[in-house]
Design a protein around this nucleic acid. Structure first.
Lengths: 132, 132
DNA sequence: CAGCATCCGCTTGGATACTG
DNA sequence: CAGTATCCAAGCGGATGCTG
């Protein structure tokens, strides 16, 4: 029942909502890993360097909750659990790759700007004597 | 001197780097506001609902540091400071809109999945009796 | 193997008060 | 108007130990 005919230019709250879903420390990396197909828990753990077991669990729960991944349990011994992107998850992955490409393309420029800012912290802006 | 000929599919570290830049609570909203043209400090403050003065300052400093916005000071009384997107900032805005559109399009589906997950927390996955 | 529970530090961010 | 400085609470995330 949302008024979808009112096309707000990039509705702020919704974007923020999604960004906080995807903007955490690990979600994107985990999603990217699953882009190559279904993955088991420890497989993901090894693939995503530096992630703790706790955070992998939490991240996967969050993604599952939002319908981005499915969790399939095989009650064998030892147990086996597969995580896989849903259609929604795949489409998110595609979109995130857009941001990823941007990041890769502009990484050097950003790092340069950062160094410039960090070294000289006083001549960074043009002070205009003229005013309204 | 980075080996740019090795095209890693969405280099994980770089993406994470940028996401943590843009994935904080306010950056995107601030950037979106500036997309409509240069803005003064309190103008941004009013436009971005809920932001504290402290966080607006920090957010703008961060964006300026990364070369995404410029800060122009008019030493008048009272002082006036304009913030404006750089070319880099504009290109980021465009990219972020991609994610924004995705968010808007799939918002309902995500919220539905979330409700489903939160209500029944046990029948959420298919347990397969078959295994490897 | 795939988790859950606990503890604990660090960072993020809000509220408030003060300044040029 | 456009900040800076301080204090403080909540949440994120790491380390460790235990379970089915």
């Amino acid at each position: 029942m949302s008024p979808s005919h009112i096309h707000v230019p990039t509705d702020c709250r919704t974007v923020t909502e999604i960004l906080s879903r995807v903007g955490d420390k690990w979600s994107v990396q985990v999603v990217v890993q699953m882009g190559e197909g279904p993955k088991r828990f420890n497989e993901l753990r090894r693939a995503v360097t530096g992630i703790s077991q706790r955070m992998l669990t939490l991240t996967l729960r969050g993604l599952e909750r939002d319908g981005l991944v499915t969790r399939t349990v095989y009650p064998t011994i030892p147990p086996r659990v597969d995580y896989q992107l849903t259609g929604l998850g795949c489409s998110l992955l595609k979109t995130v790759r857009g941001l990823g490409d941007w990041a890769i393309q502009n990484r050097d420029e950003i790092l340069a700007a950062r160094r410039r800012f960090d070294s000289g912290g006083d001549e960074r802006d043009e002070t205009h004597s003229d005013a309204a």
